[in-house]
Amino acid sequence: EAKQAFKELLKEKRVPSNASWEQAMKMIINDPRYSALAKLSEKKQAFNAY
């Protein structure tokens, strides 16, 4: 599932759970899995759940 892949990406890149969305994006934007969720709102939702 795309959300699961996105959460795994956050874990693998060691994005701190208290990081802001902007900080997290800088760490993950170059990974192909960043595109797993098409909409930015879906990415933010998955990030907030993380």
Rank of each mutant, 00 (worst) to 15 (best):
R14I: 02
L9N: 02
S17Q: 14
L37S: 05
N48W: 04
A49K: 10
N30K: 12
V15N: 01
K3R: 12
A5D: 09
A49V: 08
Q4V: 11
Y34K: 07
A5F: 04
Q45W: 02
K7V: 15
Q45P: 03
I28N: 02
P32E: 09
A49F: 02
P32N: 06
A5E: 12
Y34T: 06
I29H: 14
A49H: 04
E42C: 03
R14M: 13
P32K: 09
W21Y: 10
E22H: 10
F6Y: 02
E8R: 07
N48V: 02
Q45G: 09
N18P: 01
K7I: 15
L37Q: 07
A38C: 10
D31W: 00
E8Y: 02
R14T: 04
A36P: 03
N18H: 11
A46E: 12
A2L: 05
N48R: 12
I29V: 15
K43S: 04
K11Y: 10
Q23E: 12
E8A: 10
A49N: 09
N18D: 14
L10R: 02
I28E: 05
I28S: 08
K43F: 09
M27T: 09
S20T: 15
K44I: 11
E22S: 10
A46S: 08
S35H: 13
P32T: 07
Q23Y: 06
V15M: 04
A24Y: 10
A46R: 01
L10I: 08
F6I: 04
A19I: 09
V15D: 02
L9P: 02
F47S: 04
E42Q: 07
L37I: 07
E22N: 08
S20H: 05
P32F: 03
Q4A: 11
Q23G: 06
E22W: 04
N30A: 12
A2H: 10
D31C: 00
N48Q: 11
A19E: 02
P16F: 00
A5W: 00
K26P: 13
F47E: 05
K3G: 11
K3M: 15
L37C: 08
P32H: 07
K39R: 12
I28D: 08
S17L: 15
P16C: 04
A24D: 05
K44N: 12
Y34G: 04
V15W: 01
A19C: 13
L37A: 04
N30G: 15
R14L: 11
L10T: 03
L40K: 11
R14K: 14
D31N: 01
V15H: 01
K3D: 10
L40A: 11
Y50F: 01
D31R: 02
Y50S: 07
M25V: 13
K44A: 02
A36I: 05
L9Q: 02
L9E: 05
M25S: 13
L9A: 09
A36N: 11
L10H: 00
K13Q: 08
E22F: 05
Q45S: 13
E8Q: 11
K3N: 09
L40R: 04
S35I: 07
L10G: 03
N18C: 10
N30V: 04
Q23N: 08
K11C: 09
K7Q: 14
E12K: 01
L40C: 05
A46G: 03
F47P: 06
S20D: 11
D31I: 00
K43M: 11
W21T: 07
Y50N: 09
A24W: 00
Q45E: 15
A24T: 08
E12L: 02
P16S: 06
E42R: 02
K44T: 05
A2N: 14
F6C: 00
M25D: 10
E12T: 07
W21A: 04
K3E: 14
F6R: 03
F6M: 01
N48E: 15
Q23V: 12
L9M: 14
P32Q: 12
D31Q: 02
I29G: 15
E22Q: 06
K39P: 12
P16Y: 01
L9K: 04
K13L: 05
A24F: 02
K7P: 01
A49R: 08
A5I: 14
K13M: 08
L37E: 08
K7M: 14
I29Q: 15
E8W: 00
N18R: 06
S41F: 00
P32Y: 00
M25R: 15
A49T: 12
K44G: 05
S41D: 12
Q23K: 08
S35W: 13
K11Q: 15
P16R: 03
A38S: 14
N30E: 12
M27S: 09
S17W: 13
K3P: 05
F47D: 03
K44S: 03
A46N: 00
E42G: 03
E42Y: 00
A49S: 14
K26F: 02
F6H: 00
A36K: 11
A2P: 03
A24G: 07
S41V: 06
E12N: 08
K44E: 10
A2V: 03
K7W: 15
K43P: 10
A2Q: 03
L40S: 10
R14Y: 00
A36M: 11
E12M: 00
K13P: 01
N30M: 12
E42P: 01
A38T: 12
N18L: 02
S20E: 10
E42K: 02
R14C: 11
I29T: 13
E42M: 05
Q4S: 12
K11D: 12
N30C: 05
I28M: 02
S20L: 03
M25K: 14
R14E: 10
K3A: 11
A24L: 00
A19S: 08
E42D: 15
E22C: 06
K39T: 15
F47K: 04
A19L: 05
K26E: 13
K26I: 07
K39I: 04
L37F: 06
A36Y: 08
M27C: 04
V15G: 02
K11T: 13
E8M: 10
Q23M: 07
A36Q: 11
L10M: 08
I29A: 15
K43R: 11
K39D: 14
K3Q: 12
D31H: 08
K39H: 06
L10Q: 03
E22G: 10
I29W: 14
K13R: 10
A46D: 04
I29M: 15
L37V: 13
F47W: 12
P16H: 02
I29D: 13
S35Y: 15
K13G: 03
E22M: 10
E42L: 04
A46L: 14
K7S: 13
I28F: 01
N48A: 10
A46V: 15
A24H: 00
A36H: 09
D31G: 01
N18Y: 06
Q23H: 13
S20M: 03
K3W: 10
N30H: 11
A24I: 02
V15P: 05
E12H: 08
L37D: 10
N18F: 06
Y34A: 06
A38G: 14
A49E: 15
N30L: 08
S35K: 12
S17F: 15
N18V: 05
